[in-house]
């Protein structure tokens, strides 16, 4: 795919070495791009490696996680080759990140104001009063009422939604080019989620930043993303623009996800779940990682790992069905009830 991309990840591998025998290949050859000014959604279930991918970008991995291969090109620069001090200049400055748990992501012993101005002070040369002014502006920007009062408050005095707004304010302190949001609304109630997603969209329009949104919620993806990468067991299985993904999903896993999702907006008789469960990280299948759960799988799938093929300029899929080698059935379809919607 040829986009003007802010971030381009090629064959990223992040492994966790548990001991000499055991290695968890949490991210195992992931490639995708975040087009400039757009929102890329990374969607997947637990254990898919989506959060580890995000943490790898800023090199915020916990031990024993380690990037063992691949490239992370940010504006053409490979971040993997950067030194720690160089990475620090990028973190919170050109690339910011917000996390899933607003309740625990802010330091309980520092005021809201100090936690925001800290980021400003690291990356910008501002006087104390300018920094305070900017802090108040940021709180206003993220829609926190009476910011002059809030800067003196501590995180426990704020609700979850307000704390996530503060996290966003911290992330925006230096006008980042890329915002990585790791399940930013998962811990929030749905009416508050709506507010936060709206806020991220608004800010993106205002500031022109690119967003990488990690989520397990297909609804959130449909409403906020321009492009989507679907991850399964450490690999991207499908990458496309959001409309194509929902209209014409290609990978049996994507289809399975859509079929098993209970919907509030339409009436469904029966859900079609995906059989079985995610493979253990210690016993990854040799062939396609989804093969053990895939209703279409053949011996080819079980023996050989497919690569991520480019189907057309907007869609890539990691599945044998779309290759010339394929001789099984080709019907990969979402349930009829979803087509009516």
């Amino acid at each position: 795919m040829d986009h003007d991309s802010i971030l381009k990840i090629n064959d990223l591998k992040t492994y966790f070495k548990i001991d000499d025998q055991k290695v968890v290949k949490a991210v195992d050859g992931v490639s995708f791009e975040v087009p400039k000014g757009k929102t890329l959604g990374i969607v997947g279930e637990s254990g898919s490696g989506k959060s580890i991918t995000a943490l790898s970008i800023l090199q915020l991995l916990d031990e024993p996680g380690e990037i063992v291969g691949g490239e992370i090109l940010f504006n053409g620069d490979n971040l993997i080759e950067k030194s720690i001090p160089e990475m620090r200049k990028i973190r919170g400055n050109q690339i910011s990140m917000i996390f899933q748990e607003p309740m625990t992501s802010l330091n309980p012993v520092h005021t809201i104001g100090n936690q925001i101005s800290e980021t400003i002070d690291i990356h910008q040369k501002l006087s104390r009063t300018e920094s305070k002014k900017k802090t108040i502006e940021l709180l206003e920007l993220v829609g926190i009422p009476s910011p002059e009062k809030r800067i003196k408050q501590y995180p426990f005095e704020l609700s979850g939604g307000m704390r996530q707004r503060v996290m966003i304010a911290i992330a925006l302190a230096s006008n980042p080019e890329l915002l990585i949001a790791d399940e930013p609304t998962t811990a929030l109630d749905v009416t508050i989620q709506a507010q936060i997603l709206e806020l991220i969209k608004d800010l993106q329009d205002q500031l022109g930043m690119s967003v990488m949104l990690i989520t397990h919620d297909l609804g959130v993806v449909a409403e906020t993303c321009d492009y989507v990468a679907v991850m399964y067991a450490g690999k991207v299985v499908e990458y496309s623009d959001v409309e194509t993904l929902f209209e014409d999903p290609k990978h049996p896993y994507t289809v399975g996800l859509l079929n098993s999702l209970p919907r509030h907006d339409i009436k469904q008789e029966e859900l079609t779940p995906i059989d079985g469960m995610v493979p253990s990280p210690f016993e990854m299948p040799v062939g396609c990682r989804f093969a053990p759960r895939c209703p279409h799988a053949t011996d080819l799938c079980r023996e050989k790992l497919p690569s991520l093929w480019e189907l057309n300029k907007d869609q890539e899929v990691r599945c044998w069905i779309y290759t010339e080698e394929w001789d099984g059935d080709q019907e990969v379809k979402v349930s009829d009830s979803l087509n009516l919607a």
Binding site: T191, V220, A222, E223, R263, H264, D265
Partner: peptide, 14 residues
């Protein structure tokens, strides 16, 4: 509450 739930259909934004 119903309107706040994101719909998994990019064409049918609530």
């Amino acid at each position: 509450l119903l309107s706040a739930i994101p719909v998994p259909n990019p064409k049918k934004k609530s």
